[in-house]
């Protein structure tokens, strides 16, 4: 065997961040090589922007402004919520391909695999967020608020992308196969993203659905982005529910709640699912 890179004894650890980054890079290559994942991140958000702006948009009235400006917060929120599905798929595929065992037999830092998935997912969202922002500008959306609020909006998107991962980890650990993930994801994620202020004002829904939609974090994320960009929200001034009164705060509470409460549970369930 060639001696050039041989050394005596094993190599010293390069730290958890190194391991996380190596596994995250793999996740990014996966996105590049999977046409459906790549289209989920590029063509799909573009299609949604165009479809809702030009096809459905004309039929939906927003009390306090232009529909295309209303649309953008919702569409970005929907994409971020859906990214949980991608994480769950990655985990299910890892188990299917026994990649989990390969990683576990390597001298890597604790949590590097999930950390790698998390970092990859956050980075994967940068592409659709950029595409949607640009497409939005083309169809007439504008950032009308201040610079600090706009930065806040993008920080909130990234934070939410990180937080929602843990739902994906939970889903990917509980469901055995990629096919199962698809089934459950669509059953859960479609109502979650559509029974919300994503595409239409909550006020247009029947009473009981309004309650669900108001407390749905997809609504509050949509509304928070609208408020931070100073776009129309469609929220009537007499609305008193906490999430509609304080969507930015309520969304941050979800972000923190997901990371502090859901993440530890997800990590435990994930560990149990891989160590039989």
């Amino acid at each position: 065997m060639n001696e050039t890179t041989q050394q005596v004894g094993p190599h010293k650890s390069r730290g958890a961040l190194h391991d996380v980054w190596v596994i995250a890079r793999r996740g990014l290559i996966h996105m590049k090589r999977q046409p459906e994942a790549l289209s989920d991140a590029t063509i799909q958000p573009l299609m949604f922007v165009l479809l809702f702006a030009y096809v459905f948009g004309g039929a939906i009235q927003i009390p306090d402004g232009n529909y295309r400006e209303f649309l953008m917060g919702g569409i970005i929120a929907q994409t971020l919520v859906f990214s949980a599905f991608g994480v769950a798929m990655s985990l299910a595929n890892d188990r299917k391909n026994s990649a989990v065992d390969r990683f576990r037999s390597l001298p890597i830092a604790n949590g590097a695999v999930l950390g790698g998935h998390a970092v990859a997912n956050v980075l994967k969202q940068v592409l659709p967020i950029t595409i949607m922002s640009l497409a939005g500008l083309v169809v007439g959306w504008r950032i009308r608020g201040g610079f600090v609020d706009a930065v806040h909006a993008y920080v909130l998107m990234i934070a939410f992308a990180f937080a929602i991962i843990w739902i994906g980890v939970l889903l990917g650990s509980l469901v055995e196969t990629p096919e199962g993930v698809t089934g459950i994801a669509f059953a859960a994620l479609f109502p979650l993203t559509f029974v919300a202020s994503t595409f239409v004002p909550v006020e247009s829904m029947p009473g009981p659905l309004q309650v669900v939609a108001r407390w749905n974090p997809t609504s509050s994320l949509s509304d928070a982005l609208r408020i931070l960009f100073d776009n129309p929200t469609g929220i009537p001034s007499q609305s008193t529910a906490f999430p509609t009164q304080h969507p930015v705060l309520y969304t941050w509470m979800w972000v923190i709640g997901l990371v502090v409460v859901v993440a530890p549970i997800s990590i435990r369930v994930y560990k149990r699912s891989i160590s039989k």
Binding site: R14, V22, R26, I29, L106, I108
Partner: peptide, 13 residues
């Protein structure tokens, strides 16, 4: 890429 990734996870540069 497979071999490079495994190598890096074995803490090679």
């Amino acid at each position: 890429e497979n071999l490079v990734m495994i190598g890096e996870l074995h803490q090679l540069s």
